[in-house]
């Protein structure tokens, strides 16, 4: 059995980071050089060929610079996983929509947009149509306040109201809403706000799962397995946040998330190598492997209290 190694991901991330830094430095260098050239009145000087010596290795690094994405589980995916694990619906766990007036800073609005989107997804998946409407409205309020144009427009609200009995359309609307918000933020150079929103949604998903588990039946409850699996996605949450840590709100959030990371470090997951089982027809390929973890009641309770405290600080 081999345990998962987060350093592979960290290495990929830092390599990319340095490549990008290097590319930026080269571009800046050319920019300054060009400006210096242009300001020189001597035609002869301007016409001199400019040569810059870059080592082969550095040049290869420059060419190797890749776009890297960290895909966190979306609120909809988290809600689907909760449902498929046999979780029940408990409205008392949701962040009340009346709390919206508390969120006045960009940071609190972004984190709670993630939280409300998680609540919206959870309510929708469990066919709570009126609650879904309320949470869609709350998410719209925060998206509007964050200047996320048309993420949830009036047409979306009307479409939702007109299809309250159609679960497939409701889920499609929830999916579209999340895509609109995240793509708007990413395409308008507001990645830190997107990172805060993603992290808020991730914490809320974990909070819901932890509070839906039957603590007296930890070994049998399939939700526990889902909670343990969050150790894997937490790595990606942290990488995404680190990438945006130049923003002070994100830096503050990283400190909070490290508390969760510390508890997850106590959980060891061991997995066998993946064996690919091709399907004979056109159906899904099966990726076979087995994994075990050492989670116990003490670790579970520690994780639950840590996550609950952080989540409650977000919504208060």
């Amino acid at each position: 059995m081999s345990s998962t190694n987060p350093h592979n991901l960290l290495y990929a991330s830092s390599k990319n980071h340095y490549s990008r830094l290097f590319s930026g430095a080269v571009i800046l260098f050319f920019f300054i050089l060009l400006a210096a050239c242009a300001s020189d009145n001597s035609r002869q000087e301007r016409e001199k060929e400019i040569t810059v010596n870059i080592s082969d290795e550095a040049f290869r690094d420059l060419l190797d610079a890749k776009k890297i994405f960290y895909a966190l589980p979306s609120p909809l995916e988290t809600a689907m996983l909760l449902k498929s694990s046999g979780a029940v619906y408990n409205e008392e766990l949701l962040n009340p929509v009346d709390n919206i007036s508390r969120y006045q800073t960009n940071s609190s609005m972004a984190v709670n947009l993630g939280i409300y989107t998680a609540n919206l997804s959870y309510a929708s998946l469990f066919d709570q149509t009126q609650t879904s409407l309320h949470y869609m409205d709350a998410a719209k309020g925060l998206a509007d306040n964050l200047g996320i144009l048309d993420a949830i427009d009036n047409y979306t609200m009307e479409r939702l109201e007109d299809n309250l009995g159609n679960r497939d359309i409701i889920i499609d609307i929830v999916s579209e809403t999340f895509m609109n918000s995240s793509s708007f933020l990413q395409e308008n150079d507001r990645e830190p706000v997107a990172a805060l929103m993603f992290a808020g949604g991730w914490v809320e998903g974990l909070y819901l799962a932890l509070n839906l588990v039957d603590e007296d039946n930890l070994k049998e409850d399939p939700l526990v397995k889902r909670i343990v699996d969050n150790k894997l996605s937490l790595e990606l949450v942290m990488l995404l946040l680190e990438e945006n840590s130049y923003n002070s709100d994100v830096a503050d959030l990283i400190n909070e998330m490290k508390k969760i990371e510390t508890v997850f470090h106590k959980i060891k997951i061991e997995s066998t190598p993946i064996e690919v089982m091709e399907a004979p027809d056109d159906s899904a390929t099966i990726l076979r492997s087995q994994s075990v973890s050492n989670i116990n009641k003490d670790i579970f309770r520690h994780l639950k209290s840590t996550v609950t405290a952080i989540r409650n600080s977000f919504v208060s």
């Binding site: 991901l9 990929a12 890749k66 776009k67 890297i68 994405f69 960290y70 895909a71 966190l72 589980p73 979306s74 609120p75 909809l76 995916e77 689907m80 889920i171 499609d172 929830v174 999916s175 579209e176 809403t177 999340f178 895509m179 995240s182 793509s183 990413q186 990606l236 990488l239």
Partner: peptide, 21 residues
């Protein structure tokens, strides 16, 4: 069901991107 996540970029012939999930 689309999970709602959006990952897209402008790439040029020969370019690569990586995604972790």
């Amino acid at each position: 069901v689309h999970d709602g996540n959006y990952h897209a970029a402008i790439l040029t012939d020969g370019e690569e991107a990586e995604l972790y999930k």
